[in-house]
Design a protein around this nucleic acid. Structure first.
Length: 622
RNA sequence: GCCCCGGUAGCUCAGCGGGUAGAGCGGCGGCCUCGUAAGCCGCAGGUCGCGGGUUCAAACCCCGCCCGGGGCUCCA
């Protein structure tokens, strides 16, 4: 059994203590009053039985280094017995604490809380990730320092192994894989492991989302909560509808659940504590609530009240959350890539056993690939990552390989020695953006714990109540992130000299009609009405501007089809259609144009244009 | 949360060794009725992110805060 000196190290806004009464046979003389120290590093020291005095130097060295890094000038040494059940005798503890103080005094301003007293203690810990750390010193190596931060405790134990798994079934250690022709996969691996970044400019999609009037920041709200003007709302709404339709097509059952939950609900409390991310908290007179950060709670609470038979399984419950909230640290927010309020389609599959869950997972990967493809992202735009435990891999090699084959390209593998969250396997499809950053879109995972936590059961063939296995899948990832990916993709096309555009079914205006002169307006309106009847979003630039100007404005809006209508067309009985994709002008009848568009759109959802059809009547959201 | 960069007209930005604000685009008005990426002329429009300080004087210097970006950290 190795003994280590335990220290809880806290970066505090302030600490305030007041000696109340003597508590130990050994104590220091001290004036009984309130002591307050601002902006300091507080070390709560607990000395255990076999701790050595030499450790004091190490403790101080470590603290001083940290203080220099964080620009903290004051150190508060606070004897704190409560970190251990095997305390050293008071005289020994006191001498080690004195030693720490002496060592520290050589380098920094030291404040010492008195030893041997019961004290009233008030602290305010700063909110950054390094503000709270449990440190241990000593042990056999006498050096190995351990950094554990609350909910992430488990993660420390975990030493992931990285591989690339090819569709042929080769499991290649990362450093041995030849990334030629797999640039994006290499970028993903680097992003996941090395976390290398060297970008200074703002993500390109941010400028595009503003310019195209899709989304913008809203300073009147919390950062990471966007505003969505008409065109953005339309695109988002179409995507929401599309994903929902696809899930229902695959057998999903759509439900809706509340966006806020009781902080102290027994099932939720446990789950909440396993999540390091911070929540939005809503305080009311009698209770505190948190805003959901996923659809899980509502669906699990619902499922726990359902009467489910093995005959009903697999059962897919689906909800599209508008919104899910995560109060991400401010420095992590980025345009539409990472938000504090986001729209998340989430479909859970309740399965009878592992066999069934594997089967469902394969279907869901197919669903996800279909959804992303429908949105305009192909496998060339995506890289897959799979994470699983060693045990699961050894027992399920074939299954894992099937997933890789479905994707059809080598994938990044992260293998854990042991399970640490609630899932044993998880895959994601990642988009690599123009800055080489990876963002997860679709994902699915096998959860073997939560049905117990939430008391979700089904009655099996043998009449026994059992806990199902739960799959958590978002077939598209956050809708906002989908838009981010589309805009980043368009930007990359632009960089290569191509013309950026959105998929035609998502383009707010699909056809713009430009009358050459005022006398062509009447005919143009007739054409507009005819096209509109076919459920196509069409508008008309009736402003008093030159044709050139109107063309330019339509191009800047990425409108896929621009129709110029003047004397020539009137005479010919055909439309001059400028096609964005090819850059060519083709002559065709209204019917031919409609036909062409319908071919583009296929079975994708349609919504009418939520803006005035006459550009002269249309305000700008800029 | 910390470190770095930025915030000036609706938008994009210039001005910043201190001396009471500029351009282009957009908007409005007028002329032009126009043929596939910006027609011409004129006008209006600004608490210089917010608050405090230094100064005879602050967009400019100092402090605090807010918003955006990047990095660190993290991503259930």
């Amino acid at each position: 059994m190795l003994k280590i000196l335990k220290i809880l190290q806290l970066h505090v806004d302030y600490i305030e203590y007041e000696p109340i009464e003597k508590e130990s046979s050994i104590y220091e003389e001290v004036e009984r009053r309130r002591y307050k120290i601002d902006d300091a590093l507080l070390i709560l020291v607990s000395v255990e039985k076999d701790d050595e005095e030499e450790l004091a130097r190490e403790v101080v060295k470590d603290a001083v280094e940290f203080m220099a890094k964080m620009k903290i000038s004051k150190l508060v040494v606070y004897p704190y017995a409560h970190l251990s059940t095997e305390l050293a005798p008071p005289h020994k503890a006191y001498s080690i604490i004195k030693k720490i103080r002496e060592e520290a005094l050589k380098n920094v301003e030291v404040h010492s809380a008195p030893f041997g007293w019961n004290k009233r203690l008030v602290i305010s810990v700063k909110g950054h990730p390094l503000a709270e750390q449990l440190r241990s010193y000593g042990g056999q190596a006498s050096k190995k320092e351990e950094q554990v931060s609350k909910a992430l405790l488990m993660e420390e134990k975990l030493k992931p192994l990285w591989f690339i798994l090819t569709p042929e079934g080769r499991m290649v250690p990362l450093e041995e894989f030849d990334f030629t022709n797999h640039q994006n996969l290499e970028d993903l691996a680097r992003y996941e492991i090395a976390k290398s970044r060297a970008v200074l400019e703002q993500p390109p999609h941010v400028q595009l989302m503003k310019k195209l009037e899709i989304a913008d920041y809203e300073s009147g709200s919390d950062p990471g909560n966007m505003r969505w003007p008409a065109k953005g709302r339309l695109i988002k709404s179409l995507l929401e509808q599309y994903v929902t339709e696809k899930v229902i097509e695959y057998g999903g059952i759509e439900v809706e659940t509340p966006i806020m939950y009781d902080m102290h609900h027994p099932s939720l409390e446990k789950y909440l504590h396993r999540f390091p991310a911070r929540q939005y908290i809503i305080k009311t007179e009698d209770k505190d609530y948190f805003l959901r950060f996923a659809a899980c709670f509502g669906q699990f609470l619902m499922a726990s009240d359902m009467v489910i038979s093995h005959r009903h399984l697999p059962l897919w419950l689906y909800e599209l959350t508008r919104y899910s909230f995560r109060r991400e640290k401010s420095g992590e927010l980025a345009g539409l890539r990472r938000l504090r309020a986001f729209t998340m389609p989430d479909v859970h599959a309740f399965c009878k056993d592992i066999g069934q869950s594997k089967n469902e997972m394969k279907k869901r990967l197919r669903l996800s690939l279909e959804v992303l493809e429908g949105v305009g992202l192909t496998k060339d735009d995506l890289e897959m990552a799979i994470r699983f435990t060693k045990d699961f891999y050894q027992e399920n090699r074939d299954f894992i390989l099937e997933l890789v084959r479905e994707f059809g390209k080598p994938v990044l593998v992260e293998m854990w020695e042991e399970k640490f969250f609630y899932f044993i396997l998880k895959w994601e499809l990642n988009f690599i953006d123009s800055q080489k950053k990876a963002a997860a879109l679709s994902t699915d995972q096998i959860d073997v714990e939560n049905s117990k936590q939430y008391g979700i059961t089904f009655v099996d063939e043998d009449g026994v109540k059992k806990h199902p296995i739960i799959l958590h899948c978002s077939p598209s990832g956050a809708i906002e992130r989908l838009i981010y990916a589309l805009l980043e993709k368009a930007y990359m096309i632009m960089q290569r000299g191509g013309k950026p555009m959105l998929p035609i079914w998502l383009s707010p205006t699909q056809i713009r009609i430009i009358p050459v002169a005022e006398r062509h307006l009447e005919d143009s309106i007739r054409i507009l009405k005819k096209i509109e009847e076919e459920k196509i979003r069409v508008d008309i630039d009736d402003r008093e501007e030159t044709v050139d100007k109107k063309i330019k404005d339509a191009e800047v809006e990425w409108i896929p089809y621009i129709v110029v209508y003047g004397d020539k067309e009137k005479e010919m009985g055909k439309l001059a259609v400028r096609i964005r994709e090819t850059g060519k002008i083709e002559y065709m009848s209204i019917e031919e144009l409609v036909e062409k568009l319908k071919k583009d759109i296929k079975d994708k959802p349609y919504k009418p244009l939520p803006l005035p059809k006459y550009l002269s009547k249309r305000p700008s959201f800029k």
